[in-house]
Amino acid sequence: MERVNPDRRVSLAQQLVLELSRSILAGELPAGTKLPTEQAFTEARKVSRTVVREAMSRLQAEGLVETRRGIGTFVMDTIRPGDLQAHPHEKGSALDAVALLELRLSLEVECAALAAQRATPGQLLAIRAALDDANAVGPLHKDSTRIVFEFHLQIALCTGNSFFIDAMQHLADTLMSGAQRTLSDGQRAQHVREREQLYVALEHHDADAARAAMRLHLTNALHRARSAVQAPG
């Protein structure tokens, strides 16, 4: 029996998470929709049960689906893209964070793919150093936003594209002027895992994996930001 490379299994799970996340957040899979069974997923996508279980576990952790014992897995209620327009837009608000993350998704996913193709050994060392700083910074540190975003800036520098770099630096200025948001211990741990997965893809010069890892990281952040808009008070 052929053994599955753990990195390959993670990549397949990421792809499934990304596809389902996009469909759910776009409203293509409305709340209450019952997802296919584990066996149906494995047969349709030619992946192992382990891959499907890992993907479902991540979607549950993000509050996108719930599994009802003996019944199946269902899509949970999430905010829809058009719902945001009814709220006033204020600088530094939760809505502002949503808008920034939507922009970052359109920019940083391809940044990551180009960085994976072009990063030099020296640039990878710089990314690793920035990643270590981002993973170590405490939630109440006054410069936590800047330190974490430095990791993303280092990735953009690897593209060698001045337009990408200028856009990311402008984003950095915008982020620094906004309100700092505190993550729970679980959310911080998840951020660390996601950034580490992204770094592995960059280190292996795997553009597709880097693209998928960045998209997953930012999609998860976007979902949390949308949940903050939806939360009462």
Score class of each variant (00 low, 15 high):
Gln169Ala: 03
Leu131Ile: 01
Arg181Leu: 11
Gly178Arg: 15
Ile165Glu: 15
Phe164Cys: 01
Ala119Arg: 12
Thr174Tyr: 10
Ala116Trp: 05
Leu198His: 14
Gln123Asp: 05
Asp132Lys: 11
His87Pro: 00
Gln117Tyr: 01
Leu105Pro: 04
Leu124Met: 07
Arg128His: 09
Val65Ile: 15
His191Val: 01
Ser177Met: 09
Leu103Gln: 11
Leu140Thr: 07
Thr182His: 12
Gly63His: 06
Val75Met: 06
Ser57Lys: 14
Gly138Leu: 14
Lys142Met: 05
Asn161Leu: 10
Cys158Arg: 05
Gly63Cys: 04
Gln123Thr: 01
Leu131Lys: 05
Arg69Gln: 11
Ile79Lys: 09
Ile79Val: 13
Leu125Val: 09
Val65Trp: 07
Asn135Gly: 02
Ser162Thr: 10
Leu84Lys: 08
Asp143Trp: 02
Met176Arg: 13
Gly63Ala: 04
Ala119Glu: 06
Arg58Gln: 13
Gly82Thr: 08
Thr159Asn: 10
Glu196Asn: 13
Val192Leu: 06
Met76Gly: 03
Ala172Phe: 11
Glu194Cys: 02
Thr159Ile: 01
Gln60Pro: 00
Arg58Ile: 02
Gln60Asp: 08
Leu84Gln: 08
Cys111Glu: 13
Gln60Tyr: 00
Thr145Phe: 03
Val75Ser: 07
Phe149His: 15
Met56Val: 01
Thr159Leu: 03
Glu62Cys: 01
Asp83Ala: 15
Leu64Tyr: 07
Pro81Arg: 11
Leu183Tyr: 08
Gln169Asp: 11
Gly160Ile: 04
Ala129Gln: 14
Gln123Ala: 10
Ser177Trp: 02
Gly160Met: 07
Thr78Ile: 06
Gly82Tyr: 11
Ala134Ser: 12
Ala116Tyr: 05
Ala97Tyr: 10
Gln123Asn: 02
Ala112Thr: 04
Phe163Asn: 10
Arg69Gly: 07
Ile127Val: 15
Glu196Met: 09
Ala116Arg: 06
Val200Tyr: 08
His170Phe: 12
Thr78Leu: 02
Leu103Gly: 08
Arg118Gly: 01
Leu114Val: 06
Ile165Lys: 05
Gln190Glu: 15
Ala156Gln: 10
Phe149Val: 00
Gly122Lys: 06
Gly178Tyr: 03
Val200His: 13
Glu110Arg: 12
Met168Lys: 09
Ala94Gly: 03
Glu196Cys: 02
Ala94Ser: 14
Thr182Ala: 09
Phe151Asn: 06
Glu108Gln: 14
Asp133Arg: 14
Glu62Leu: 12
Cys158Leu: 03
Gly70Ser: 05
Leu140Phe: 12
Glu62Val: 00
Val65Tyr: 07
Arg193Ile: 03
Ala130Val: 00
Val200Lys: 09
Gln85Ala: 15
Glu108Ile: 01
Gly82Ile: 04
Ala86His: 13
Gln85Asn: 09
Thr145Pro: 04
Thr67Val: 03
Ser184Gln: 08
Ile127Thr: 04
Gly138Lys: 13
Thr159Val: 01
Ala134Leu: 03
Leu140Gly: 01
Asp133Tyr: 01
Ala172Trp: 12
Phe74Leu: 06
Ala99Thr: 05
Gln169Lys: 14
Ala136Trp: 09
Ile155Val: 15
Lys142His: 12
Leu95Tyr: 08
Pro88Thr: 12
Ala86Tyr: 11
Ala94Tyr: 10
Leu124Val: 04
Phe151Leu: 13
Leu59Phe: 04
Glu194Thr: 01
Ile127Met: 12
Gly63Asp: 07
Glu66Tyr: 04
Gln197Ser: 15
Leu105Val: 05
Leu175Met: 11
His191Thr: 03
Gln180Val: 09
